[in-house]
Structure formats: structure tokens, C-alpha cells
Design a binder for these strands. Sequence first.
DNA 1: AGGACAGCGGATACAATGTAAATATACGCG
DNA 2: CGCGTATATTTACATTGTATCCGCTGTCCT
Lengths: 245, 245
Amino acid sequence: MDEPLGAGPTRHASDRGRYGQLSRERVLASALELVDREGLGALSMRRLGGELGVEAMALYRYASSKDALLDGLVEALHLELEERLAAEPGGPAADAAPAWRSGLHRVARTMYDVCLTHPQAVPLLATRMLAVPLARRPAAVLRHHERVLALLAEAGFDEADASAAFRAFTAWLLGYVSVELQPMVDNPEESDPAFRLGLHRIPPQALPRLRRTAPALAERGGAEGLTAGLDALLDRFTAHDRTAR
Amino acid sequence: MDEPLGAGPTRHASDRGRYGQLSRERVLASALELVDREGLGALSMRRLGGELGVEAMALYRYASSKDALLDGLVEALHLELEERLAAEPGGPAADAAPAWRSGLHRVARTMYDVCLTHPQAVPLLATRMLAVPLARRPAAVLRHHERVLALLAEAGFDEADASAAFRAFTAWLLGYVSVELQPMVDNPEESDPAFRLGLHRIPPQALPRLRRTAPALAERGGAEGLTAGLDALLDRFTAHDRTAR
DNA sequence: AGGACAGCGGATACAATGTAAATATACGCG
DNA sequence: CGCGTATATTTACATTGTATCCGCTGTCCT
């Protein structure tokens, strides 16, 4: 850590090509990897710099602040969403559902999968993303919004209903992944689901239902639970002048 | 930063009865007030100490860490929920809905109101609260869970369905308040809703639906939107062996 | 070729934060 | 009164985000 000789601050950065190696993609990918591995709390500029073999301040060329970096992670998640959607094209639905509905299912399920891959990053979706005013959200997020709106338009919603359905879609999706994926993060190595919730040491007589239901609460609803609830919500909006379904 | 005179570190804390004034309630109330006024980012131990006329370290007697303090805020929100539920007793529902259903409506609506009063604290619900394992959550939160489970049991759900319905209830409630209340925080003084989203400077031809729908997206669904969606979700779980709706 | 130049990364510095440890103070009880 | 315990303060430190300035690297122009 000390500078033994050489009064001038020389000879440092010439140790090979640590020059053009950084890029926004590399920074964000490395940040996401770090968050996946050690959680959001481990993401600091110096730490991330260390991962990339670079000084902390170098990162500021690719994200103008830490908040901007977090927004970048939100963007990265949506880019991964787009990749996955493009990978599995999901042609005309096998089941009898209309195209717009299975389209929304596919978007929701894919987002669920993305979040399952990066559970530690989920809080960013529920907070940072919503905190950013619509127009300033990363392009990938806006494209995602646009895709959902297009599917809703395809369903024949007028503007008001589409807007309501859009908000319901977003709320349900974010709420669902938050509730479902966040608990998995904290005691990850504990396989017994009942124990993972720590239901031991709930006072025995107090809160009887909670105590009884706790094991079942540790179950996951999975992507099926997501799409099932989504259908329920969507039906509510389609059922304006016709009967549900 | 220097000590001009008086070698001994005396004469400081004798300036009147700043002694037994602190309490957990006062600390949490002051913290919540500060968050309401200036946002979560303004909540630091020193700042909060300042609000209470006390040094930062004094707070550690009432919250063992900053995270514990944030959990305390989650608790405070749920205490306020309980107060409000107790205040308006909400006897037998005026409408024809069964008691359990209007009970759930009331809980959801009241929580919505609480969040409306403290929009800056909403992110804590969606992150801190879910991150804490079930059994370690504050007592008020557990009582809230118990109440919801009791209402679901009253509805005749078996354990598995009650658990699924409980998760859906929580996910929808948290997602809804997050989506609905969080944007309101950042540009609070902007009354025109379209402008609040900053839909200006969306590229004109790109994202046409988003651009067209943006004004409608700025609308709020209000508590009605919350309960409507809740009904849709609950119906999905009641409709096991009977036809939907 | 040489030399300006723009962009990249490093070095240093600073203020703000959470918090551990030791210390001083106030209150209540014998 | 004095003693003990709960309460608050002081001091200190490591960690964080980030402003600023500087040297280095590669490119392009003449």
C-alpha cells in the first residue's frame, strides 16, 4: 500500500492494457453479477471497481452516480427480459386463449423467470423503477411498457381501460415477484420451507391461524400463480358489458 | 473541531432536562414525520437525533441499528393501520357482500389510506417488510397477517387456498400501493398529472401507444381500483368447483 | 513522423454516514 | 447521602459516495 521509491507518481498505469476494457455493458453486467452473488448491500463503487480491476472513480464515466447505476441494473433486467422474449418466439398459442392474452402471460412469465434468476435485484424493480418518472425510465423499460400497452390495445381496450389494465398488470407483477422472491433471498441455504420462515418462536397461543398456515405460506405459487391472478385481473376489465371470460 | 479552552470535557449535558424525554414511540413518530416531510433519504441517525434534540447515539437505545429503525417504521405503519381499523368499527356491511369480503375490503382500503398519508414510506413495505423473515416481523405486522388469515378462514378457504389467497392479497396490496403512490412522491407540487409523468420528451414516433396512453396512466385508480382488483383475485380462489364469477 | 487532442482511468481528498467504546450525567432507592 | 442503573454524550473509526485534478493512451491531422 506504500510507495517505497520513486518520488513522482509514475509507473502505475502502464502495467498493461487496462485501458479500453471498461464499457457500460461490462460495468452493469459485473454489477448485476455482484448483486446476485452477495446482495444489494455489497454493491459499492469501490467493491464493483475491485471486481473489474479498476479504481472506483473510473465507474463514473459509465454511470453518473450510484443511483444511475441502480437504474442501469433495472435496465439490465429489462434487457434480459427482451432477450428471453426474443429467444423463445412464442408463436400462436397452443391453447385456446386469444393471442393478446397469451402474449401477456408470456411477458409476465418471462419477467418472473428473470426475477427468479436475480432475486436480489427484485427490490430495485419495486422501488427504483417506480420512483423514476415515466419518461426518464431506461429505454428498455419504456419498450416493455409499450409492448404491454400494445397487447392490451390488441385486446380491444379503450384508452381508459387499457390504462387501468396496465397499472393492474404492473402492480400485480411487481407485487407478486416481490412477495414470492424476496423471502427466498435471506435464508437461501435453508431447504425446509417452514423453517425458512422461522415460524418457530411464534408464541404458541397467540396468532393461531398464522402459526397453522405458516408452512403453507412458505410454498411458492410459481409462474402459474402469477398468470392465474393475472387472468383474474384481466377478466375484471374485459367484463365491462359482456360476461366474464 | 478544536477545543479552545477547558481541558476537562465538562459543562456539556447539564443544560436542562433532556433526560427521560426519549422513548421508542417518540423516536419512531419523529422518524416517520421526518420521512413524510423530507423522504427516506433524509433519515439519518444524526438528522433524526437533531429533530429530537439529542445526539445520534442516543437513538441506539431505542433501535439497535438503522435497519431496526426502518423495521420500526414498518411497525409504526401497521400500528396506524390498527388504530384506524379500531376507530371506524365497520360493523355489518351495508352492501350485500359477505362479512369476510367486506372485511378484507376494509383492511385493504385502510392500508391504502395509511400509505396515502405516508407515501414516502411505501418502499419500506415493499422491501424491508418482505425481507424480514415472517417470524421476526414486528408484532403489529404479525397481527395484521393474522387478521387477514382469519377473514380468509371465515370465507371457508382450506389451508392451501387460504395461503394462496393470502399471498395474492399481500402481493396485490403492496404492488398496488407501490405503483399508485410512489410516482406521487417525486414531483409532488406538479398538479397536472400528464406533466407529472414527464411524458414530454418521449420521442414522438417511437413508443406511440405509451405516448398516447401516458395521460391516462397518470390517473389514480384510488381505493376502488384496489378493492375491485382484490375482488377479482378472491373470486379466482372461491371459484374452485363452481364456474367463475 | 510528430504533435495536438479527446477520452479514459488513477490519485487524492472530503463530507456524510453507521456504529463501537468509553465516559459523563441524572434519577431513584437504600 | 451515596450508590447503581438507565440514559445521553463524546470521541473515534471504517466505509461510503463523489468532486477535482492529473497523467496516460490512443487517434487523427498536418
